[in-house]
Design a binder for these strands. Structure first.
Lengths: 147, 147
DNA sequence: TCCTTATTGACATTGATTCTCATTATCACT
DNA sequence: AGTGATAATGAGAATCAATGTCAATAAGGA
């Protein structure tokens, strides 16, 4: 991993190691503050700036995905190496609950690849990633609808 | 339109009319500030708060889509009534350029409907909308890569 | 071990969005 | 058309995520 960091002209430091380690173990879509707070228990020294800088670095390295879900703060999730972990999001517009789903990924992937190829050629883009999300109202919010 | 506003327990006011009118005529993915500035020429009285509040209202009414593209500000686009306008986004992660594309919408729609149905049942969600976006590097940024 | 310099953490700053509240304007009802 | 209840507005303050500043620190090659 140290080598991977080198590629990005970076030193391997204790804070970076701690943040990467934490991300690789934690659940998905955490905000920077959540990461900072969780990390603070074991590593009280790590500051907010370093959390942001390191998440940005990890995103550039392709180890982490930055999500903008419209709730005023970005979220980050560790990108597992194996494809089996690939998923998209189902988001409740009322309470912000985020559900990962992985149905139809085979079919989706076919369409995505096809679209990518076409878009890359037509718009002369290098396509690096894609996001698919469904927005709606979750079970809980449906229940408390008429209050 | 006045009736539509009524449904959302709202009065039809001059600022709301101006903002809606502006949105329906303008290009896509504008930031709140851009909307405020453009509007300011003809309607100097309209404040920033009202722009935000009205965009939020229009979004709840389903007339406008709120986009979170990760650049620190939300963007808004008018949702045309006819389906022919349906599109998704191709976003440059370097410079933020946003391209609308509408390739493969028929195939996409099939997949999306299928996925929606499955997700709605499995997670007991009411699915109201979806977003698909591709991220990458645009033509211009590719060119100025090695500077 | 030493030296260069990338990295850090505390703090200040920015900038988008939301909140507050006195004032204004809409519209249902006369 | 006039009136009154109150929804909506606008100016400015407040909030809060994210970024910038900079002196102190630490990584890692020599």
């Amino acid at each position: 991993m140290k080598d991977k960091f080198k590629e990005y002209a970076s030193r391997m430091t204790a804070p970076r190691e701690a943040i990467l380690e934490f991300m690789s173990r934690s659940s998905t879509h955490l905000s920077a503050k959540e990461i900072y707070t969780s990390l603070h228990k074991k590593h009280p020294g790590i500051g907010m700036s370093t959390v942001y800088r390191t998440l940005d670095l990890l995103a550039r390295m392709g180890l982490v995905t930055k999500l903008a879900l419209g709730d005023g703060q970005n979220r980050y999730e560790f990108k597992a190496k194996d494809k089996s972990d690939h998923h998209h999001h189902l988001i409740c517009t009322r309470c912000g609950t985020i559900i990962n789903y992985s149905e139809f990924l085979e079919e989706e992937l076919t369409l995505v690849r096809k679209t990518e190829k076409k878009l890359a050629k037509k718009y002369n883009f290098i396509i690096e990633d894609h996001n698919i999300e469904f927005l709606g109202i979750c079970e809980k919010c449906k229940g408390s609808e008429k209050i």
